[in-house]
Design a protein around this nucleic acid. Structure first.
Lengths: 217, 217
DNA sequence: TAAAGGTGTTAAGAGAAGGTTAACCTCTTT
DNA sequence: AAAGAGGTTAACCTTCTCTTAACACCTTTA
């Protein structure tokens, strides 16, 4: 399930959007201004940003610009009331992936969201795709592009864990529970294994003090 | 050698593509619009379709849709422009296997083409080919180049297993299940048999803790 | 500024998993 | 009964995995 961050100060529009997006199986976090949005990005990792341009304190452009500067590459869609080209190009300049003009058809928005998310994240017939990595749930095989990646038993367990809970944080405790049969594995060992998976290229993010997550960006 | 049908009305792009694809050892038929494409599919069987969405007369979606309806299951990749992103979901609906966004890295396209084609090319008329090995499914005979390789009953069972599930990992448990009739065979015995198959030259890869797979190069 | 806690990275050693070989068993053929 | 083929077992060797431990680095706190 994909997690969205919606920044929108028009309460009516926001409530409608949240409702519709949840019907589409998205998990939506809604905030009313740019500052809250900025804070929210520290709390969670999102799969997509949906920013209104004109919101209090920090406008959508500034918000995305500073996020991009800090290395955040989450796909972003702007909602804009202004349909002049100047603001659109500004949007793309600061790192937007798409935009949609108010008023809009919800279906159109849903399609754009899906296509942006699907670029990176695709679940299809027992194959979970993340960027160029394909994990086959049924056979427990990991491929990069079309190359098979051989994994050791523990690497395999970890990889399975991560792909089954794509883009959600898994606590160190949970991982250690899963890994150990009878004996509890140590955190040091876990770090070594995470390190090995990263050497295979898997984009594993550290959530300090908590655990790890397989990132979608 | 794989045969591709390219439908692209942008002459520059098409010529570049044909050139690059031929360097990659593909045989490319290029047509400029959907009608010619449709006709071409009657003349030849192709191993892969590469369709631009916006082409004259019959657009890529319609084209693929009617081909699929007529029972054609050739793998298809769409080439779409940036502003067609919204229509991607339509592409999957009508039966596309993949898509690529203009402008694109050629390497990326080549990888996708290869991964879609390779699987189908390997199986042809009850003969599964891996490198210079040919396994005849119907007669259960293994050849290296043109030389028949005599296999003992168990070697034969194993070989059949591996070729039928080419390049997927088969667990030790599954192999032992298949081998044994009534009695469960031991892992030690399995190792000896794997060893024998390797002496015949078959490229069997070990996945420690899991099982074995017949590897693609 | 130092100290402390959390994480990343690497090397080394113990132990497990798998590879290899040869002897042995079983069944069939002669 | 002897010979032969295929299969299994057991012993030994090799290779890989996993863990530990030491150190580096960064951030936070005193």
């Amino acid at each position: 399930m994909a997690r969205l961050l919606l920044v929108e100060d028009d309460v009516n529009l926001a409530e409608t959007l949240v409702e519709l997006l949840e019907l589409e199986q998205f998990e939506v976090t809604w905030v009313g201004d740019g500052e809250q949005a900025f804070d929210a990005t520290f709390m969670h990792a999102y799969d997509l940003f949906l920013f209104d341009v004109n919101v209090p304190f920090i406008d959508g452009f500034e918000l995305l610009e500073s996020l991009r500067k800090s290395g955040d590459e989450t796909p972003a869609i702007f909602i804009t009331a202004m349909n002049d080209i100047a603001s659109l190009s500004k949007g793309f300049e600061v790192g937007a992936d798409d935009y949609i003009k108010k008023p809009f058809e919800f279906d159109e928005l849903a399609v754009r969201i899906n296509s942006l998310i699907r670029k990176r994240l695709k679940i299809k017939e027992n194959i979970i795709t993340l960027d160029d990595y394909h994990f086959h749930i049924d056979t427990n095989e990991l491929y990069y592009q079309d190359k098979f990646i051989a994994l050791s038993p523990i690497e395999l367990k970890l990889t399975t864990l991560f792909f089954k809970q794509l883009s959600t944080t898994i606590t160190k405790e949970n991982i250690l529970m899963e890994l150990s049969e009878g004996e509890e594995a140590s955190e040091g060992a876990l770090r070594v294994h995470i390190n090995k998976l990263r050497k295979h290229g898997l984009p594993i993010q550290t959530i300090k003090g908590t655990g790890y997550r397989l990132a979608t960006s």
